[in-house]
Amino acid sequence: MHVPDGFLDAPTSVATAAVAVVGVGVALVKARNELDDRTAPMAGLVATFVFAAQMVNFPVGAGTSGHLLGGALAAVLVGPWTAILCLAVVVLVQALVMADGGITALGTNVTLLSLTAVAAGWLVFVAVRAVLPRRPASVVPAAAVAAFASVPLTAVVFTLLFSVGGIAPVAFDTLLAAMVSWHAVIGIGEAVITALVVASVVASRPDLVHGARPALAVRELEIRSGS
């Protein structure tokens, strides 16, 4: 869903750049609480993996394709503030080195692919986790639902931006329907990849999964009271 230069007018691009700067600025402060000697290398790995996975477009029928966004995946693995930074670095490297996503659209792409995708993914994840049994394994389905939802939700925010600052006059309803329906299909791929990756990390080292911490804290208490 990388927005190229030219889709959005200058005022909208400036506004999204301001949003991106503020959002990343807040994340730079807040991420300190999620990062220590143990988690910092994991966060670097997550950003690197998301970059790699985004290179692999999977077909979604009728001549269209999609790729992992990774916002929900990163948020579940390393925490939402760190995930914002992960995705921001991905978008920055893609725009500057690979010419994937525009330069004047950099603020727009950080707003969408980092801030929006991570926020949507994390909030849905937390909501689903709350209704599931409190154990590390619950993190996997919660992450899958969050990953699925994050893609059409990000498409909705793109459509809102386009309705405000799109260069071309396109009817809002038509664009919204097309964007949400295609990205719901892409969201299935997002959910599958996210579930596979989260499940492998939960199986090997649940303590390295940020989203599994509440469940692990409960288990630790139970073990202690039982001894």
Binding site: M1, H2, V3, F7, M55, V56, N57, F58, P59, V60, G63, T64, S65, G66, H67, A155, F158, G166, I167, A168, V170, T174, L175, A178, M179, W182, H183, I186
Partner: peptide, 17 residues
């Protein structure tokens, strides 16, 4: 990787922008 346009490109093409 699939070389088809991604979701946004596809929608943009259909919508003519």
């Amino acid at each position: 990787a699939s070389s088809h346009p991604d979701g946004l490109e596809y929608v943009a093409e259909k919508a003519g922008f």
